[in-house]
Design a protein around this nucleic acid. Sequence first.
DNA 1: CGTTATTTTGACCCATGTCAATACGGGTGG
DNA 2: CCACCCGTATTGACATGGGTCAAAATAACG
Lengths: 223, 223
Amino acid sequence: MLTESASLDDGKLSTPIFRSTRNDALEFRRPSTSFIPRGRALFWEGEEEAQKIEIVEGVVRAVRLLENGNRQILAFYWPGDVVMPTHSTNQQYTAEAVTDCRVIRSKVSGVCRSDEPCGAHQVLADTLSLVLTMSQKNCVARIAWLLLRIRPHLPADLKRPEALRLQLPRADIADHVGTSLETVCRTLAEFKAKKLIDLPNRKTIRFINLEGLARISNGPAFD
Amino acid sequence: MLTESASLDDGKLSTPIFRSTRNDALEFRRPSTSFIPRGRALFWEGEEEAQKIEIVEGVVRAVRLLENGNRQILAFYWPGDVVMPTHSTNQQYTAEAVTDCRVIRSKVSGVCRSDEPCGAHQVLADTLSLVLTMSQKNCVARIAWLLLRIRPHLPADLKRPEALRLQLPRADIADHVGTSLETVCRTLAEFKAKKLIDLPNRKTIRFINLEGLARISNGPAFD
DNA sequence: CGTTATTTTGACCCATGTCAATACGGGTGG
DNA sequence: CCACCCGTATTGACATGGGTCAAAATAACG
């Protein structure tokens, strides 16, 4: 599958906490904090464990694989989010690390209540809005919608003022909004040309005109 | 499952339009069936009642409405199915009668467990496969997929042997698989021309070549 | 520095949405 | 029972969004 080269290429820029000093080399100071290298799965479809996973650092994607090799990314999860299996008989999706991650695993009860909803409720909300977005909006609107959604979670790029580190590769964006990698590129270029965003480099984004993006994300009707 | 002869169309003559719904405060009361005319809502987005609704007869759709007036049908429910609100703070969808329906309402607890999952789990499973279908398959495959899914639930057409009563209007099919009404028509006509199905009239369908339909529903890769 | 993964840009064209005209067909009232 | 009517369905013509293939450019990595 993916290279688990454990090279902290992403980590060194985005994760000042992790690896900040040599002394912290072992993260086991904090109980049950574990490290997940980029590309590795946190759990798989079909796994039955009842656990919850809090993301401390990094980005996680919920994925369903398909017969033909294609994949659908159902949702992204960010630091502070808690990822849980649906407690049905088996997972409906796989959780994978988009970037190097640090997470905290803990047990969870078999029932879910309003104060502690299980993974199903969490994923449901995301998935519902995804279905709506996918079925009602065109590619441009979907990508604008995605950018606005992820923006609050993106870490600042230390070197460039006002710029954020876009942590998702183009392919992941494409597999989330249900389009091709090429269309993502073209659309981002279009946004840049329209001065809605700036792209200092491939992994960095600067939001310039949020209202414009929001208007586009509402769909072609409002151009 | 529960194959009813289901000639409710006649039944509405003798049935009182609406049994005034006072919520049965006592859980163990013998449930009474209520009649829901075509087009009426069983519950709405945002409603907070904790109830479950068993469909005795007819078809129900789970709908989300959109700003621009479009709608997305998340799922259809059939006799024997139990429709439940997600027990989160509010509904994520509206339930409406596609055809005249008879249903049984009853109270439900605030928690959900494996043996009695709440609406979220139910809708989640449907919605997940919907997302996958929508993002990965073309219109033809999506419509074939829908036909195969609804087939087990369709009541027989008494007058024509082997024929089933297609209870969903074209518009509902379109709003479920995320395409236009016209494309649904064209695709059905195409299936008929290829002798995969027959359409004796607008509300009747006869399945001829299930394998062929299944192949198409797997996507364009397998033509 | 050479090699590889990721991204960008271009060319082409098919599937599907949209607009528009027509044809059913099932209720309703006479 | 018939004729009318309106919602639903069908079919056609047309434009285009976005998928696919291909090649080049950039960044990442040893």
